[in-house]
C-alpha cells in the first residue's frame, strides 16, 4: 500500500507538489466520522493520487532521482536487514582500531540462505546521523567490512552488500588512518574473494566510498538510486565552478548516474523496480523486491565453484572501459 507524504515524515519532494493537495483531501475525508459514506470518493481520490504519482515518477530527471535517493524516510541498510533478514547477528569492529557505525556487518538468513550482510548506514535520528557521519564511512568501516567478508569466505557464506553513501568520509582522522588504503585493499580483496558477492545500490552510490563495498558478481541498483564517480554537487562545483540548482541538475544529467543509465552503459547488471512513488512510500514492497533479486542471484551463483566465480568476476571487471585507437599528436610530441 502506497503511503501518503504525511506518513513519510512530512517531508515532500518539490516535484511531488501536485500530489500533496490530493493527499490532503484524502486525509480530510478519512478523518470524517462519516467517512464510510464516502468510500467510493475515497477510492477515486486514491486512484488519481496513485496515477499522478506514477506519472510524476515516470518522468523524473536525474537530479530529481538524486533527491528521491536522499529522501529522509527512504529505507536504509538497517531497515532492509530488519525486513529481509531472519536471526540477524551483528558483528562489530575491524580488530585494529574501532567500530564504525557507518557500516553495518553481520550474519543473517535471507530466504533459504545463510549470508553475510554488509551495508552503509546513514542513521535516522540526528544522533544516529552524526554517529554514522551521514553514511560516510571511515577506514575502520571499510576494514570491518573486509574482515567480515573474509569470515564469510572462510565458511562459504555468500556476501550481500547494500550500498548507500554520499562518499567515504573526507576528514583529518580518515586520512590519518588511511582512507585510500582501506578502500584500495577492499577493491583488491573483493575481486578475489572466493564466495559469491551480490551488491545492491539502495540509495546513494557515491564514488570510491560506494565501490569500497561494491565489487561483486552481480550488482543491481534500485530504480531511484544513483551511482556516480562524484556527487552532482561536487562535480558542479568543479566543472561548472559553482554548485547551484541549475548546475547540480546539469551535472546529474551529465554524470549518467541513474540506474537506467548505468544499466544501459553496462556498468550494473540489473535495475530493481521500486513501488509507486519510491521505496519510502512502501518499504516492505521495496524490501520484498530486493530480497527476491538477492535470493535469485545467490541461487545462480552458488552453482559455480568459487574459482569460477572469481575468474568471471575478474573477466567482468577486465572488460569495463571505452577506448579508441589513434596516432598521438606527433607534432606536439616533437615540440616537447
Amino acid at each position: 500500500m502506497v503511503r501518503a507524504s504525511e506518513h513519510v515524515g512530512g517531508y515532500s519532494l518539490p516535484f511531488e507538489q501536485p500530489v500533496i493537495e490530493l493527499e490532503r483531501q484524502i486525509a480530510a475525508l478519512e478523518r470524517r466520522p462519516d467517512a464510510e459514506e464516502f468510500a467510493d470518493d475515497l477510492k477515486n481520490l486514491q486512484a488519481s493520487r496513485d496515477s499522478l504519482l506514477q506519472k510524476i515518477y515516470r518522468n523524473l530527471t536525474a537530479w530529481d532521482i538524486v533527491r528521491v535517493a536522499r529522501h529522509p524516510q527512504r529505507p536504509q541498510t538497517s531497515d532492509y536487514i530488519e525486513m529481509m533478514c531472519r536471526d540477524f547477528c551483528e558483528l562489530h569492529g575491524d580488530r585494529h582500531f574501532g567500530d564504525d557505525p557507518a557500516i553495518i556487518a553481520g550474519l543473517g538468513r535471507i530466504g533459504p540462505y545463510k549470508v553475510l550482510i554488509v551495508g552503509h548506514q546513514k542513521g535516522r535520528t540526528t544522533q544516529e546521523k552524526i554517529a554514522c557521519h551521514f553514511g560516510c564511512a571511515h577506514p575502520e568501516g571499510y576494514r570491518k567490512a573486509l574482515k567480515k567478508m573474509k569470515l564469510a569466505e572462510k565458511f562459504g557464506l555468500p556476501v550481500v552488500t547494500l550500498i548507500d553513501t554520499p562518499g567515504a568520509y573526507p576528514g583529518i582522522k580518515a586520512e590519518e588512518r588511511g582512507q585510500a588504503e582501506a578502500i584500495a585493499v577492499n577493491l583488491r580483496e573483493m575481486s578475489r574473494l572466493q564466495t559469491p558477492i551480490v551488491c545492491v545500490v539502495i540509495g546513494e552510490g557515491g564514488s570510491g566510498g560506494a565501490l569500497g563495498i561494491g565489487v561483486g558478481d552481480r550488482v543491481a541498483m534500485l530504480e531511484y538510486a544513483w551511482y556516480s564517480v562524484i556527487s552532482p554537487e561536487g562535480c558542479a562545483a568543479i566543472l561548472w565552478k559553482e554548485a547551484n540548482p541549475d548546475s547540480n541538475s546539469a551535472a546529474a544529467n551529465a554524470l549518467a548516474l541513474t540506474a537506467k543509465a548505468n544499466l544501459a552503459n553496462g556498468l550494473v547488471d540489473h535495475v530493481i523496480s521500486e513501488p509507486v512513488g519510491g521505496a519510502h512510500r512502501d518499504p516492505q514492497a521495496a524490501a520484498k523486491s530486493v530480497q527476491s533479486w538477492i535470493v535469485d542471484r545467490i541461487r545462480q551463483l552458488k552453482r559455480s565453484k568459487p574459482e569460477t566465480l572469481v575468474q568471471r568476476r575478474y573477466d567482468k571487471l577486465r572488460k569495463i572501459g571505452a577506448v579508441a585507437w589513434q596516432e598521438p599528436q606527433s607534432s606536439a610530441s616533437a615540440a616537447r
Partner: peptide, 20 residues
Amino acid sequence: MMESVFSLMQMAKTAAALAR
C-alpha cells in the same frame, strides 16, 4: 569525472589486476 562510473570501475579493474 567525465567518464563517471566507467572511470570509477577502473579502480576495481586495476586493483583486480594487481591481485593476480
